[in-house]
Design a binder for these strands. Sequence first.
DNA 1: GCACAAGAATGACACGCCGTCAATTTCTAT
DNA 2: ATAGAAATTGACGGCGTGTCATTCTTGTGC
Lengths: 205, 205
Amino acid sequence: MNETAFAEPTGKRERTKVANRQAILVAARRVFAQLGYEAATVRDIIRGTDLASGTFYNYFRSKEEVFEALADDGARRFRPILRHAREHASSFDDYLLSAFVAYFRFIVEDHQPDGLPIDQRRPHVRMDIPEMMAVYQEVRQSLEDAIAHGDAPRVDADYLACACIGIAQEVGSAMLRRSPPDIDAAANFATGLILKGLEGAPRQG
Amino acid sequence: MNETAFAEPTGKRERTKVANRQAILVAARRVFAQLGYEAATVRDIIRGTDLASGTFYNYFRSKEEVFEALADDGARRFRPILRHAREHASSFDDYLLSAFVAYFRFIVEDHQPDGLPIDQRRPHVRMDIPEMMAVYQEVRQSLEDAIAHGDAPRVDADYLACACIGIAQEVGSAMLRRSPPDIDAAANFATGLILKGLEGAPRQG
DNA sequence: GCACAAGAATGACACGCCGTCAATTTCTAT
DNA sequence: ATAGAAATTGACGGCGTGTCATTCTTGTGC
């Protein structure tokens, strides 16, 4: 019966479930972009699909949860990029630069007309989203590794990771306010600030 | 009639208006701290006073607006501290350090049991609040002055201000998660990062 | 003192959104 | 073909919001 031993799109049941969930996510993304998070209602979202209001709650518990799912998807797309940057970087400097470039590219994409509302009401980085937490952990791990290998000085890795994220958020936000946004300039600024900031601090042998 | 030529608390009318507004703000602060912003309702707030539900709307247009008024008050308290730091600093380094210390002290105070809910759902710095915007402008102005006087290298003052704010937010947040929060350690970390980050960049004559 | 106008407080009410649930439809397996 | 499981539907109860006609309070002119 199972044609493909471990594939997922089996019966019609499963297929429509996947399709419906996707439809809700797509509609939600558009509605959030148009109305903003606060003003958007669950009904607005479901009206963008051919489903009934009650059906929404078969897929998500609340408006909050769809938003998190969208943000989660974002973080999930971003993580492999970050990992790739780490594994292919020729140096710590190189890693930092490509990580910042990756993040800034990412938020520029998500800032498109159909993207999530990146405004002052919703912070870019939401540490309460599991996937986002994972991104933070990954950054922190990279920094700890760099410190252990002597590529970076021995500073508080937790604070440093937070500082990187803070810089990424705020400088990224400022970059988006400029037109056109210059990703390389912003990334160079951020990387330079951190790298110089670490110079002179004591290192591991 | 006016004993004090230019004082404000004149008739009973005016006095109760001021008192009611204050009562609402006090109750709101407590309710927000207890329930969090999302869960709190206007009714919860008004129940903390001896006023009727409709009266709330004589003073604020919405829950959002009371919150902003509270945050605004916070920023208004913070600004003179920042200015004092700038005017009394012996050097740029000194200014940065005292500014970070002031900010971290500030959020530690506001994180008390009856303080505003500082969590992941509400960013610390809300750039859409006029007073907060003023704080940002002030930071930026200080940095521009420092650059013009040759105390800081010639970098993008806007990005640098954003980076400072981002670092303050995220490192501050991380500091609050530790117990006990070490304000000086966090401030030293932040200051060191920025100062070293600026070393070596070209300066104004 | 008194009456009257302006201003503020009150709380009942209409509205809109949320999340649930019994009834119904759609799918799957035998 | 049919029974049973799973998903969908939309009407409904509950709740929070913001308004508004009414009532109460304050300030003013006589």
